[in-house]
């Protein structure tokens, strides 16, 4: 992680009509950082990512978001987004899915081929390259999305509860794979989750959000050594600290 600022969020405010969803949120994300954003369900975590990418034509009501010091431009900035729901294209094979972002970005065919091979190996789907999403398991589907995202070597990777629908064993496996990919590529990651253990396991820093209207309750640096052990007392202490922060009961 460098000290260079990759994402700068200043006074981000979002209203839907009279409903204030995001209330004056400011923070920075450093290049190569793995930031986890946690908060109660329905607090506006996804809205935050949608504002960042301007998906669904989301425009901020106030404030600004800069990537590399410039307003977000999806055609200019190399961003990838992994969604909670399965997003593989059903009409495309595994390798065609992985190649999609590279094709949109009009990379040369040789590079596309090379990157796809590399990603297939990294996510362990080489044998399944010619399979269609309808023939794959849940974990394979999410691996396809992850491979497709990493294939474009994004400067910023956004992940919106990508493992939210999975059981624990599968989640642990995919989390480990994600960490390996991140360490290998040095991509800046913003990872949204409501799972505190996941945030502690993955992140370098945790942003704890409040309930609506959402603001930042606390930013916590996570310097636990890797590989992390969920039974380690220091791990549990940090998990408890974050849990206390988002407790509503």
């Amino acid at each position: 992680m460098s000290d260079e600022i990759k994402v700068k969020v200043s006074h981000m405010t979002k209203k839907f009509g009279d409903l204030l969803v995001l209330n004056d949120i400011s923070f920075d994300v450093k290049t190569g950082e793995f930031l986890c954003v946690v908060g109660p369900t329905g607090c506006g975590k996804t809205t935050f990512l949608n504002c960042l990418t301007k998906l669904k034509a989301y425009e901020l009501t106030g404030g600004e978001i800069l990537i590399n010091g410039e307003p977000v431009d999806l055609q200019k900035h190399n961003i990838a987004y992994i969604f909670q729901e399965y997003s593989s294209f059903p009409w495309a094979t595994v390798e065609e899915n992985i190649a999609y972002g590279l094709k949109v970005k009009k990379r040369p065919p040789e590079e596309i081929k090379e990157r796809v091979e590399e990603m297939l190996q990294l996510v362990g789907l080489t044998e399944y390259r010619s399979y269609y999403p309808g023939q794959l398991s849940a974990s394979m589907l999410q691996r396809v999305s992850i491979a497709r995202a990493f294939a474009v070597q994004p400067e910023l990777l956004l992940m919106d509860e990508p493992y939210g629908q999975m059981d624990n064993s599968l989640r642990y496996k995919l989390e480990d794979e994600l960490i390996q990919l991140w360490q290998r590529t040095g991509t800046t990651v913003i990872f949204i989750t409501h799972n505190i253990e996941e945030a502690v396991y993955l992140s370098q820093r945790i942003l704890v959000l409040t309930n609506k209207p959402t603001s930042i309750k606390k930013e916590i640096d996570n310097n636990l050594p890797r590989p992390r052990d969920v039974t380690d007392p220091a791990f549990n202490q940090l998990r408890d600290e974050v849990t206390d922060l988002i407790k509503w009961w």
């Binding site: 200019k76 961003i79 990838a80 997003s87 949109v104 497709r148």
Partner: peptide, 18 residues
Amino acid sequence: TKPVHLWVAQTFGASRKE
């Protein structure tokens, strides 16, 4: 068309035509 598929394309920088 599923919105999530369009969002994938959009975040990769695809134009409306693409």
